Simulated assay, not measured.
Amino acid sequence: MEVSSPLTEQATGARGSAARPLSIWVVSDGRTGIQNQALGLAEAIARLTPAEIEIKHVRWRALFDRWPSGLKTPAMLTPGSFDPRTATEWPDLWIATGRASLPLSARVRDWSGGRTFVVQTQDPRWRYDRYDLIVAPAHDGLSGDNVFEIIGSPHRITPSKLAEAAPAFADRIAPLPHPRVTVMIGGKSKAFDLPEAHAAVLADQIEAAVQTTGGALLLTFSRRTPEAAKAVMTERLSALPGWIWDGTGDNPLFAMLDAADHVLVTEDSANMATEAAATGKPVHVLPMIALKPPGKFARLHADLAAQGAARPFDGTLKDWTYAPVNETERAAAAVLEAMAARG
């Protein structure tokens, strides 16, 4: 049964009297952490109004990939990439994330004859006037008439999605003792590093906390985790009850978050911190080696702390409660309101 709401009625009205689903294209380079921002926002919109979502991947030939966005043309796309030259119709809503999407996002309004409402997540750092709405992290400090700020990044985490993922991994997770500690490890970036020695220190601290509580460990690494860090953490933590996912098979992250009593995340990723805060579980932030002042990451963690979600990891697994941080849903409502306002 579909439940009507003012937002649903506004969106339907913006599309005309015929009650047809909102057509949404989700556009990115296809990397999971990038795509999930646009896809999570699209899914949140689809929970507010009937919608059909299509995923489009944009990839540029290696020769042109690092070129400025303003110089790129569709002729530079790789074979198999979404190519706007082949589009016969355009969606009601284009939601894109990441640098690869920018040369197309900036031209969608022209290509669609103004039919398509263009949303870009993250700070595009280029041609701000070419997007109908920019859903930007508050910690980036972006402002403007077409900017909607949220804490962190849009994502796909909802209680129902976590619960749906759990049965597929129940054989591995259900027998584990509580408290279950889900650990999300990032890696090297422009702002942070995770050398082997520091990874060993973190592993020892995590091991001590889990052993003290008699709990279990559920750990995942990101694609940015250095191999040396991954190896030393796996070696030092493998004796604990639990599961260290080695990257083979289906990704168990949603099931691990569903099972978690505590979530530990390294401080290098806005995505991981925001996803963890959407669970309502205590979020403990693990320190990394800073390569420059933390700046926006410090602002993000302060925002999450102000929501009651996150605290620096102090070596213990203290319990606390807070309302899950639900910024993706808030952004979805803002998109529909902006579409309705444009008419």
Rank of each mutant, 00 (worst) to 15 (best):
A163I: 00
P84G: 13
P252T: 01
L218T: 04
K292F: 01
L194F: 05
W25L: 05
F254C: 00
T32S: 13
V118W: 13
T279Y: 01
P312M: 09
F221G: 04
K296V: 12
E275C: 07
D171V: 00
A138N: 06
F254R: 00
L317D: 08
L240K: 02
S238R: 15
G215Y: 13
V147K: 08
L77G: 04
A231Q: 10
G247I: 10
A44H: 11
T86V: 10
T321G: 02
A87V: 03
H155F: 03
H284E: 04
R115S: 15
F313A: 07
S222L: 07
S222F: 11
R299N: 11
P154R: 02
N146G: 08
W245M: 11
V108A: 03
D123I: 10
R299A: 13
H57F: 12
M1S: 15
T158G: 04
V108H: 09
L39S: 05
I157E: 02
A200I: 05
A302V: 02
F64K: 13
V210R: 05
R47H: 11
H155V: 08
V283K: 05
G80Y: 07
E207I: 01
R66C: 11
L77V: 08
K318V: 14
Q205T: 12
A166H: 00
L240T: 12
F297C: 07
W245Y: 12
K161E: 03
A302H: 10
E235S: 06
I157G: 09
L63M: 07
D204P: 09
V26E: 01
D319S: 11
H57Y: 12
R125E: 14
H155T: 04
W25N: 01
A87K: 08
V232T: 12
L41A: 13
G308D: 03
E52L: 09
L41P: 09
D140E: 01
P241K: 10
R99Y: 06
K188F: 12
G187W: 03
W25P: 04
P293M: 08
A231M: 11
H155R: 02
S112E: 06
T12Q: 15
G214H: 14
I157N: 01
A14E: 06
F64R: 15
A298L: 12
S17I: 13
T8L: 15
G141C: 04
A231S: 11
S69R: 08
P84H: 10
W60D: 05
I134N: 06
F297M: 15
P124M: 07
V118Y: 12
S269P: 06
H155G: 01
G280P: 08
M339E: 03
K281H: 14
D246W: 07
S105H: 02
D171R: 00
I289K: 10
I24H: 03
N146R: 10
K72H: 12
I173C: 00
P159F: 01
T73Y: 06
A203C: 07
S238Q: 15
A306S: 14
A75M: 07
D250V: 05
